[in-house]
């Protein structure tokens, strides 16, 4: 009997009373679900709903203020035959490819420089982020002034240096216009690459470099066989994010050229805006936006598979 009295009482006086919710949350599966709910709600509201709404719009003939009827794939057929859409596809692919290559190369170079110890390192790192921090519209307006056909400070500088005799028509010449928007995108995107790659570089143990140096590896060999393989998974994730963002770029081109001259800088997003908002053809705008999806999906799948392979090895 004594033994029985020593056993813990069924309700311990010092323990607060636990309600059914607390008891439920003690089960990790339920707790996980509850913790995930805010994220799920946010993703549902801002990602899933617009996406499915976009799909719904693309198979109807909805216009602003006019409910649409189901038209199947008619909108896709229309954009397939649309010469401006073809230009936008080509421009977007070229724009994304060229900017990504330059952003990666310059970002990596900058990250490697910033990974060294030097005086004013913290200040330089913060300063380099500026293009990324300034709202895109504001910085692009500044670039617009710099490219202005009449008042371009770049032209003025080149002229003063004796490098040019006439004006360079930065945004008026179709090829130069695309190059100009590429330059601005690279300028804006390099800090993101540099700081993210720098974070990646700092996770690489210096001991590995030291060991390689002792074994006689030169700087390039150390980069090629130590730094690069260890940095690759981070790099691929950064490139993935960057490609998605660049593919859907809007503000920069909208402010700089509005897609002109003669659609020379028209991208998916600017053309979708032009049709969806400018003309009120919501379904056609949504169709163009959605046309990006399969391309991006393919890019994401290939990259994620590659990342998994790299990590497994």
């Amino acid at each position: 009997m004594t033994f029985t009295s020593v056993a813990a009482p069924s309700t311990y006086a010092g323990t607060p009373k636990r309600g059914p919710v607390t008891r439920l949350l003690e089960d990790e599966r339920w707790l996980a679900l509850v913790l995930l709910i805010p994220t799920l709600v946010l993703l549902g509201l801002f990602i899933a709903y617009p996406f499915f709404k976009g799909v719904e719009l693309s198979v109807t003939d909805t216009k602003v203020g006019v409910p649409g009827h189901f038209v199947g794939l008619q909108n896709f057929e229309k954009i397939w035959n649309d010469s401006i859409f073809h230009v936008a596809v080509w421009n977007t692919c070229l724009y994304t490819f060229v900017t990504t290559v330059f952003k990666l190369a310059l970002g990596l170079w900058l990250a490697l420089l910033l990974n060294h110890h030097f005086k004013g390192k913290a200040f330089t790192r913060a300063f380099i982020l500026l293009p990324f921090i300034i709202p895109t519209v504001l910085s692009t307006l500044a670039w617009k002034w710099m490219f202005d056909p009449t008042f371009s400070v770049i032209n003025w500088g080149l002229f003063r240096l004796g490098l040019i005799e006439g004006r360079i028509n930065w945004l008026g010449d179709p090829n130069l216009a695309l190059i100009s928007v590429i330059i601005v995108n690279v300028w804006r995107g390099v800090p993101f690459y540099a700081i993210s790659l720098l974070a990646g570089l700092q996770t690489i143990s210096p001991e590995l470099h030291e060991a390689a140096a002792i074994d006689g590896a030169r700087a390039w060999q150390r980069f090629r066989h130590v730094t690069w393989p260890l940095l690759l998974p981070v790099t691929l994730v950064i490139v993935l994010f960057s490609v998605i963002q660049t593919f859907a770029d809007f503000q920069l081109v909208y402010v700089l050229t509005g897609g002109g001259p003669a659609n020379a800088t028209q991208l998916f997003a600017t053309y979708a805006y032009q049709l969806g908002i400018g003309t009120g053809l919501l379904s056609e705008g949504a169709t163009i936006s959605l046309a990006i999806f399969p391309v991006l999906l393919l890019v994401v799948i290939v990259q994620l598979l590659y990342i998994r392979r790299v990590e497994t090895h």
Binding site: P149, T150, R167, N169, W170, L171, G172, A177, G258, P261
Partner: peptide, 18 residues
């Protein structure tokens, strides 16, 4: 002015006034 290919609605105002 051949820069006009890139002008927006305020560019000609600025060019004229300058």
């Amino acid at each position: 002015d051949e820069g006009g290919l890139a002008w927006d609605d305020s560019s000609n105002n600025r060019a004229f006034l300058s």
